[in-house]
Amino acid sequence: MRQPTSKNQACNFRPGQMIKGRWHGNQYQIVRLLGEGAIGKVYLANRTGQPVAMKVARESMSVSSEVRALRQISKVRGVSLGPFFVDMDDLEGAHGSTSFYVMEYIDGEPFLSFINKRGKEWMALFLIQLLTDLSALHESGWVFGDLKPENLIVTQKTPSLRWIDVGGMTKMGRSIKEYTEFFDRGYWGLGDRKAEPSYDLFAVAMLIMNVGYPKRFQRINGGKKELLDKLKHQPSLSPYRDVIVKAIEHRYDDASQMKVDLMKVMKKKLTVSTPEKMHVRMKPTHKKRAHKRVSNVRMERKYKGTLETAVFSSFLLFLYILYLLG
């Protein structure tokens, strides 16, 4: 969006510049520009030696509204997807005051490139994690809105999914604040833009489509058939077909239903690649006992030392993480 030039310049900080907030008096040193979005720019900055991410907006109202969303996420129990909120303040400058907020700096790799490098099997794991958190978010009365790979980052050490942009977060029942066409059911002519769980779940389905079609695809006329055709023409998506179809038909009322179905898909894939045994492992009951089995099996298989074992145990690791996620 075009803004008056003076406002644009107010968002420009240079590396090394010191920023001191007018209200809370905290000092930050700009390290470098991380990215640019619809409402402003994000910088990597230092706060007493700690790396933080600083978002500078053209309008102070965008800052207020995003900070509200960040605070909301941190209130949701067990959800660690979003960055932690650190500070919010104004900088007094020649062009008047500029609003900014500071949050945890999440270092990692973008969702799609991580999956491309490490393998598609990671996708299901991350999506299950994502759906767990979406379910909690929805329960708290909010919808994520602008769900897309660019807003998802995989952290380095223990690969887990975090989201980095909460600009689309919308209170349940209102109209979606921000969206990206490919992931928007309205764009495909398959629903409205009311904030409800099924809006996010449609976007999750399109996230899977995006993994199958890394360059995405253009809409021709929209409609369900167009998406189903795309689904048919990408064999790697076939295991997820039913889940995707259910999500684009809004047949999931909440994220946990979709999660259950995705877990079934994973289970099936595991059964196919390694016959016997997998059924026992995936039984959702007796969580603790299942845990033990997982590690036992891992021990047994190690002796065989085949390549298959390596692949297999990495799957088991996912399952383990899954159980941890509960």
Partner: peptide
């Protein structure tokens, strides 16, 4: 803009 950031949030 002359309100404290926290008050602005409520206003938003």
């Amino acid at each position: 803009e002359d309100l404290e950031p926290e008050k602005r949030e409520e206003l938003m």
